[in-house]
């Protein structure tokens, strides 16, 4: 597990995003045990405080939970996983739409290009 961090977004936000991407793509499954904050800090080469902060936020968002002294786990709620997936899709589409709108391209023109590009990328 290795992330290339950018220096302008809070590191903990980038860590959460990293988890969300893994949730959306199925790398992490519902109920799966997650690394302790110390392990996470070590794996991602980040400050343990940052790992702590990321987990705290994730717990508040309901992405992970902790029972007693047991290791934290991903939520077992499939709906949360779906919601995360939708959130990421929406975010990506929003960004795309914003970019495209600034150059005033009609939707009809864009869609075939998207289809073509997407297929090409996936085949590579």
């Amino acid at each position: 597990m290795k992330i290339k961090f950018n220096n302008r977004d809070p590191v903990y936000v980038q860590v959460i995003r990293h988890f969300k991407e893994q949730m959306a793509t199925g790398v992490i499954e519902p109920g799966q045990e997650i690394p302790s904050r110390r392990e996470l800090a070590n794996q991602l080469k980040i400050n343990p405080n940052t790992a702590q902060r990321a987990y705290k936020e994730m717990e508040e968002e309901g992405l992970i939970f902790t029972e007693g002294n047991l290791p934290s786990r991903m939520t077992t709620d499939e709906k949360v996983f779906q919601a995360v997936r939708s959130e990421l899709i929406l975010e990506a589409v929003d960004a795309f739409v914003n970019a495209v709108r600034t150059i005033n391209v009609p939707l009809d023109e864009v869609l075939p290009i998207i289809e073509q590009k997407y297929k090409k990328e996936c085949n590579e």
Binding site: N6, N7, R8, D9, P10, V11, Y12, V13, T50, R53
Partner: peptide, 14 residues
């Protein structure tokens, strides 16, 4: 450092 990224979107180098 996290606060300045969060509130101002700046890196330490910025």
């Amino acid at each position: 450092t996290e606060e300045i990224r969060e509130t101002e979107g700046k890196s330490v180098v910025d």
